[in-house]
């Protein structure tokens, strides 16, 4: 694996985990009675940038290297389902994440201007969904990495 591919994989993991962590902070602040909307707006904005960065760096690694060098190894190994199910689900669920995170940022802008309890609850659920998707994608990455090394 070349150095740019290594850096892309590291960036995909680190920036992705950072974006998940920021979304977790957003969700936890939604549990407060009076969240700091300006702070939440900043967190959600950086989370969106993080998901986009992880998306782009992951795309480079996946398109250039994974299909040719990693996928065949997993399919011939003891855990082919790690690609057939886990990777396939991961790569397609990931496509939705930056859009969900961008929508979350727009919705926090609304709540910053004027609060509405029903919208707040709906947006909290969106943050939770992003968080759960992010956790699934991070866990899937660990399984795929393990399957490739086994």
């Amino acid at each position: 694996m070349t150095a740019p591919l290594t850096y892309a994989l590291i960036a995909h993991v680190l920036v992705g985990v950072l974006a998940i962590g920021l979304t977790h902070l957003v969700f936890m602040h939604f549990l407060r009675k009076t969240p700091s909307w300006k702070y939440l707006r900043s967190l959600a904005g950086w989370a969106t940038i993080g998901f986009l960065g992880s998306w782009a760096s992951g795309a480079y690694y996946y398109v250039v290297y994974y299909g040719k060098a990693v996928k065949p190894v997993i399919l011939k190994g003891a855990y082919p389902w790690a690609h057939q199910v886990i990777m396939e689900a991961k790569e397609h669920i990931f496509i939705m994440l930056p859009f969900m995170s961008l929508a979350l940022w727009f919705l926090i802008l609304v709540l910053e201007k004027q609060q509405d309890d029903k919208i707040k609850k709906a947006v909290r659920n969106l943050a939770l969904t992003i968080l759960l998707f992010g956790a699934f994608i991070a866990g899937a990455g660990i399984i795929i990495s393990g399957a490739a090394r086994s």
Binding site: H92, I95, M96, F99, M100, L102, A103, F106, L107, L109, V110, K113, Q114, Q115, D116, D117, K118, I119, L126
Partner: peptide
Amino acid sequence: MTTHVRDTNLLIRARAAAEGTAAVAVLIT
């Protein structure tokens, strides 16, 4: 407490982003 959202532009953009997200989910599936 429920209050009326006065900034219509923000409301419309947020709704458009949510609808775009829903459309992306359907398209990807």
